[in-house]
């Protein structure tokens, strides 16, 4: 039984990171723990870096995680996983969406988006486990590209020793009805992927 977890969800504005983190925090409460989540949303514009901390414990103090102690870094975008990697505790878990969203510094300026292999190598050098999820095509297959965040939550839920029903309830309660059929389908669909079967097999 889980009694304490520090999660850091990161991505790019518009990917549904904040909604996903709301759901993850709610799951903590539903599991009978205390939970807090914290993010900074200053500018309303799309496309900036988004970070959201979620903490589960019998009694949570700080709403943000401590640098270098995150148990699970869940990145909705490939490059962002590298940006936030140092927050992960050594040996922690990274769940990363393969989707690439080119920042303006690379599209307009001279910065270079690192190669996928390079990023994954860096992740593997620090993390104990790196789970790569191809969430965008899965979301599109399920019928809506805006449900990438549900795919990511599905991936997370299979890695933790928690009842999947708790996650499903929290998701259905939080997201607009119009996405729910897609979300249900997604959860099922994810469970049919080789990635999922691999996760289940490796779950502690």
């Amino acid at each position: 039984m889980i009694d304490q977890m520090n999660f850091l969800f990161v991505g790019v504005g518009g990917q549904g990171v904040l909604t996903a983190s709301d759901i993850a925090a709610q799951v903590g409460l539903d599991l009978g723990l205390d939970a807090k989540k914290s993010e900074v949303h200053g500018f309303a514009q799309r496309g900036g870096v988004v970070e959201s901390h979620i903490r589960w414990a019998p009694s949570v103090g700080s709403p943000t995680c401590e640098y270098g102690t995150v148990d699970v870094l869940m990145s909705f975008e490939l490059l962002e996983a590298a940006r936030w990697l140092d927050w992960l505790k050594p040996g922690g878990t990274v769940i990363v969406n393969r989707q690439q969203i080119t920042p303006m510094s690379a599209s307009v300026g001279d910065a270079v988006y690192p190669a996928e292999e390079e990023i994954l190598a860096a992740l593997k050098a620090r993390a104990g486990r790196v789970v790569v999820v191809d969430a965008l095509p899965l979301a599109e297959q399920a019928g809506n590209s805006r449900t990438v965040n549900t795919i990511m939550l599905a991936a997370l839920s299979t890695l933790l020793d928690t009842d999947p029903a708790v996650w499903e309830t929290a998701i259905l309660r939080r997201v607009p009805d119009k996405y729910n059929d897609v979300n249900r389908q997604q959860s099922l669909q994810y469970q049919m992927t080789p990635q999922y079967r691999e996760h289940r097999a490796r779950r502690p």
Binding site: G48, G68, A82, D86, M104, A111
Partner: peptide, 25 residues
Amino acid sequence: EAPEALPEKPGIQINVPSRPPALCP
């Protein structure tokens, strides 16, 4: 001491391009 901030294995440093805010499309 502070919690271990360095990876047990030597980390790989990569240049992460910044993602500055911008006017929306």
